[in-house]
Design a protein around this nucleic acid. Structure first.
Length: 490
RNA sequence: GGCCCCAUCGUCUAUCGGUUAGGACGACACCCUUUCAAGGUGUAGAGACGGGUUCGAUUCCCGUUGGGGCUACCA
C-alpha cells in the first residue's frame, strides 16, 4: 500500500449498460477507496466516438448509483483531454521515445494476413523508424498521413501485481504500438496513461483482460517520466458454461437484476464475493458497511469465477428477510401501486397492517417482485380459486361445505374484533375440527383455499389476521356459495 | 500460431507442507408443521494429469492437459 491515501478509478467505456463484470471492478475499487480513506474516481473512456453513446453513459451512472457506489470529485470524460493526450504524444516524439509511421492501415493488414498465411506471427518491423530525417521531413511536408508509434526498448517489463505477484513480459514480444492515430486522436493505452497520470491514480485495479496492456502502459509511464501506480488485475466473471459472460447467459447488466427484483445490497454482497474472500470461515451475508470493513485489499483471488444466479437469489432472500421492514415498504409500495393492488397512500394509511403483511410475505420471497405476486389475494375483492388447489383440497364439495359452514358460524360467534387473535382462532379451529371428527389439516387446507384461493400462503391464522374478521367471514361465505355451485353442477 | 494469466466438491470458496481437505449455494433426506417458505439436522460431492523437492505435498518447482485473455490507426 502507498503511504498516502490511494487514488483509484473506475474507467468504463460507454458502449453499453453496466455489465456485472464492470460493476464488480467498480465495487472493488470503491471498497478499497472507502476502506483506506482513499479517493474513488470515475472516468468515462469515450475516445471511440463511433461506439460511445450518451445513453450508455447514463446507464452506467445509474447502475453505479443503484449499487450505491458513489464517486469522488467530478467525472472525467476522456474525450475532453484530447489536447493533453496530443501534448504527451508530442513529448514522446520530441524526446525520441516515439516515431512517425507512414504505413497505411491497408498495408498493415496486408502484411498481417501475409504473415499469418505464412504461419508466422505479425509484428511491426519498424521500417518507418529507419527512415532518414530528410525523407521524414519530406513526407510530413507533403502532408502524408502518419501515426505515432511508441518505440519499445529492449529488455523486459515486469511489475508486482497486487493479485498476481510478479508478472513479466519480454519486450521483444511487445510491438511498437500506435499511440496517436493519423487523425491525431489517442489510442487507448496512451489515453489511459496520460489520464491516470493527470488524475494522480496510485492504484490501477481492473479486469485481468488488461494484463497484456500493462507492460505497454508501464513503458509509457517510464517514457513520460511519471511514477508508476500499483496494478491489481482481477479475474474475469464467467457464465455458467465457463465462457466469458455475455448476452447469451441471460441477464448481464446490473439493471437487469434490479428489474428482476434483486436488492442493491444483495447484488453488492454477491459481487464482492466473486474474486475476493475475507479468508477463513466467515458469514457470507454481509452489509455494505461490513464489506467495507473487511475489504483490506488482500484476499483477492486469481481464478475466474462463474456467476451463479441461484446463489444470488438466495443471497437476495437473505437480505430481504433481514432489512428493516420500513425499507421493504419503501421499496415495494410503489410496486404494489404499479400492480394495481393499492396506492402508496392507501398502504401508508394502514402501515401497521401493511408491515404485518410484508413480514409474512418477505420470508417467503427471494425476489422483491414475489412479494407483490404473493400479496395479490389480500387485495382482491373476490378470491380467484386456483383449479389445481381446488381439485386437491375441495375434492368433496359437500364435506368441505359442511366444514366451511361450521367455520363461518364459529367465526361469526366472535362478536368483537378485539377477540380476533391468532391464538384464539387456532384454538377455536382445532376444537371445531375435533368436533367434526377430522384432523386439523383436513379443515385448515380447504379453508386456505377459501381464504386465498391457492395452496401456499402464510400461516392460516396470520392470513385471517391480515384479512380481518369481516373479510375472513365474507370469503368463507363466498367459498360456501362456490361449493354449492360445484355440487349443483356435479 | 505467438505472448500472458489461471487450475480444490456442479458453483462460490477455506487451507499460510502434516487436516477425517472445512464452510456456503444448489441437490437429496429427515425434523419442525395447517400449506409454502424460513429455520434446524444429516447425506452425496473436490485437490486435472505426470514428474520432481521433502520424513511428508492440495500447498513449493518443472512439464502436460484443459480453460481464459490479449495479439487493431477498439476500449
Amino acid at each position: 500500500m502507498t503511504a498516502s491515501p490511494p487514488r483509484l478509478r473506475f474507467a468504463p467505456s460507454p458502449t453499453g449498460f453496466l455489465h456485472v463484470g464492470g460493476a464488480r471492478t467498480a465495487l472493488f475499487n470503491w471498497l478499497l477507496a472507502r476502506r483506506t480513506g482513499g479517493t474513488f474516481l470515475l472516468r468515462v473512456e469515450d475516445t471511440d466516438k463511433s461506439r460511445s453513446t450518451d445513453e450508455s453513459t447514463r446507464a452506467i451512472f445509474e447502475g453505479l448509483q443503484w449499487l450505491g457506489l458513489d464517486w469522488d470529485e467530478t467525472v472525467v470524460f476522456q474525450g475532453a483531454n484530447l489536447e493533453r493526450h496530443r501534448a504527451d504524444a508530442a513529448t514522446l516524439l520530441t524526446s525520441g521515445k516515439a516515431y512517425r509511421c507512414f504505413c497505411t492501415p491497408d498495408e498493415l493488414t496486408q502484411r498481417r494476413t501475409a504473415a499469418e498465411a505464412a504461419g508466422g506471427a505479425f509484428s511491426y518491423d519498424r521500417r518507418c523508424d529507419r527512415l532518414d530525417t530528410a525523407e521524414i521531413d519530406h513526407r510530413v511536408a507533403a502532408g502524408t498521413p502518419f501515426v505515432l508509434r511508441f518505440r519499445v526498448p529492449n529488455g523486459e517489463t515486469a511489475w508486482h501485481d497486487l493479485v498476481h505477484e510478479r508478472i513479466s513480459f519480454p519486450n521483444k514480444d511487445i510491438d511498437d504500438f500506435v499511440i496517436l492515430r493519423s487523425d491525431a486522436t489517442p489510442i487507448y493505452n496512451h489515453a489511459v496513461v496520460s489520464d491516470d497520470i493527470a488524475m494522480g491514480i496510485t492504484i490501477v485495479m481492473r479486469g485481468d483482460d488488461h494484463i497484456s496492456n500493462t507492460p505497454k502502459q508501464i513503458l509509457l509511464y517510464e517514457a513520460l517520466g511519471a511514477p508508476l501506480p500499483q496494478f491489481a488485475h482481477l479475474p474475469m466473471i464467467h457464465g455458467t458454461d465457463g465462457k466469458k459472460l455475455s448476452k447469451r447467459h441471460g441477464a448481464t447488466a446490473v439493471g437487469d437484476y434490479q428489474h428482476l427484483g434483486i436488492l442493491a445490497p444483495a447484488m453488492v454482497n454477491f459481487l464482492a464475493l466473486m474474486g475476493w474472500s475475507p479468508g477463513g470461515d466467515f458469514e457470507e451475508v454481509m452489509t455494505i458497511d461490513r464489506l467495507v470493513h473487511a475489504f483490506k485489499g488482500d484476499g483477492l483471488l486469481r481464478k475466474a469465477s462463474v456467476f451463479d444466479p441461484k446463489k444470488l437469489e438466495w443471497m437476495n432472500g437473505q437480505h430481504l428477510a433481514k432489512m428493516p421492514i420500513a425499507d421493504v415498504e419503501a421499496l415495494v409500495a410503489p410496486l404494489f401501486e404499479k400492480a394495481g393492488l393499492a396506492t402508496v397512500a392507501q398502504l401508508s394509511a394502514r402501515r401497521d397492517w401493511f408491515h404485518h403483511l410484508l413480514e409474512q410475505l418477505r420470508v417467503r420471497s427471494r425476489l422483491v417482485d414475489e412479494i407483490v405476486t404473493q400479496a395479490a389475494p389480500y387485495f382482491a375483492d373476490a378470491v380467484t380459486y386456483d383449479p389445481d388447489a381446488v381439485a386437491k383440497q375441495w375434492k368433496d364439495p359437500g364435506a368441505v361445505l359442511a366444514l366451511m359452514t361450521g367455520v363461518r358460524e364459529s367465526l361469526e360467534s366472535l362478536e368483537s374484533h378485539a377477540s380476533w387473535d391468532p391464538l384464539l382462532l387456532e384454538e377455536m379451529m382445532r376444537t371445531l375440527a375435533e368436533s367434526k371428527g377430522v384432523g386439523a389439516g383436513k379443515l385448515l387446507q380447504p379453508l386456505r383455499i377459501a381464504l386465498v384461493g391457492v395452496s401456499a400462503s402464510p400461516g392460516i391464522f396470520d392470513v385471517m389476521l391480515i384479512l380481518g374478521r369481516d373479510g375472513t367471514i365474507a370469503r368463507v361465505a363466498a367459498a360456501e356459495r362456490r361449493l354449492r355451485e360445484m355440487m349443483a353442477s356435479a
